[in-house]
Simulated assay, not measured.
Amino acid sequence: MKTNPPAVQIVAISADEAGQRIDNFLRTQLKGVPKSMIYRILRKGEVRVNKKRIKPEYKLVAGDEIRIPPVRVAERDEQTVSPKLAKVASLADAILYEDDWILVMNKPSGTAVHGGSGLSFGVIEGLRALRPEARFLELVHRLDRDTSGVLLVAKKRSALRSLHEQLREKGMQKDYLALVRGSWPSHLKVVQAPLLKNILQSGERVVRVNSEGKPSETRFKVEERYAHATLVKASPVTGRTHQIRVHTLHAGHPIAFDDRYGEQEFDRQLATTGLNRLFLHAAALTFTHPNSGEVMRMEAPLDERLKQCLKVLRQQAQ
């Protein structure tokens, strides 16, 4: 038995619906349709407002007439979707902000920023699959594979140049949250220790404090204390590989579940919290918008596993 194919819908916007972004409106209209597909039909011009193409950030006005194309997601298609496509769809949900110049996302832990080193899929490859019409998408900076949080991507070459200049001139403020072993001393506000990068035969990068290394500086502030751990804000002044992870280790307070620079005994103490990933999160990034000149502060919320860990630690500290 054949089912009728879904038809084009024409929807008129009421006064109550006015003011919201078209992408958010479509998510309520097209229940169960992945966010990535919604962005795709917007970018391809299949959604029209008053017979005109619009951008995802377009805000609806009362009386607008929206053309919504036929979109159908079969249940069995969703079940057989490839892991790579599923990852691409999850990246769409991780986007915090986007305009014509930049894209900001809350990178999940466990996803590399670039494919390579035996990985076929990274954030940048995923974003290019998500935005096939984008002629330019390049990372402004990097995050370690197991580090989560704010990641900035340039959508124009001129934007990349501007943002790279801000990085060089130290005009970009990065704030991370890290859960470290023991009681971090309140007076320890800065760690300055030169870092030397070594590449092992396996291709693995290991960084050590070494007088022959590059000058490196990280600023620290205690955010919260627990029985066997401290949540610190770490703000790197320089941008060396694994800098925060090695500086906390150098200070005698390694980060929880750091498989390279951590301590197994500390990880065992955290067993009851359910944590099983590196507790290092790029919580905020402050920079100047490459086009408008506006100072922007983008914040990325902690994922559920990190929030749950802190919740348990607070309960244990009572």
Rank of each mutant, 00 (worst) to 15 (best):
R240Q: 11
G171N: 06
G19I: 08
K170Y: 13
L26I: 04
V61R: 12
D146S: 03
Y39R: 03
E169Y: 10
G19L: 06
S235D: 02
F279T: 00
Q316S: 13
Q29N: 10
P215N: 11
R208W: 11
R128I: 06
M105S: 09
P83Y: 05
G274M: 07
R67W: 13
E265K: 13
R21C: 02
W184E: 07
L91H: 02
M1G: 15
L42P: 05
K55V: 11
Q308W: 13
V49P: 07
K155V: 00
P6D: 05
L310C: 03
A317T: 14
G115C: 07
R43N: 03
L302K: 10
L195W: 06
R131L: 15
N106A: 02
S162E: 03
E98Y: 01
P34T: 01
R27E: 10
D100M: 09
E204N: 06
I54F: 03
Q318R: 13
K214R: 14
E169I: 12
T147V: 06
E75S: 09
K87N: 15
P254R: 08
I102R: 03
G182A: 00
G182D: 04
Q29I: 14
G126H: 06
T218V: 11
V81S: 02
K31C: 09
T248P: 13
D93Y: 02
R40D: 05
T238Y: 01
R268A: 15
Q79D: 14
L167E: 07
H247C: 02
K189Q: 10
S36C: 06
W184A: 12
S117W: 14
G149A: 08
G171S: 09
F25K: 00
K59H: 09
R40S: 03
P185H: 07
F220N: 04
Q315A: 11
H289A: 05
F136H: 10
M105R: 01
K107C: 05
L127P: 06
P290C: 10
T111G: 08
D258N: 08
G115I: 08
I13G: 01
K87Q: 15
T80H: 12
R72Q: 11
H228P: 05
I13T: 00
G115S: 10
S36V: 11
R131N: 09
T218D: 04
G274R: 04
G262K: 01
M172P: 13
V11R: 01
D93W: 03
F220S: 03
S120R: 08
M37V: 14
A62G: 00
K233Y: 14
V222P: 08
R314H: 09
Y261T: 04
I13R: 00
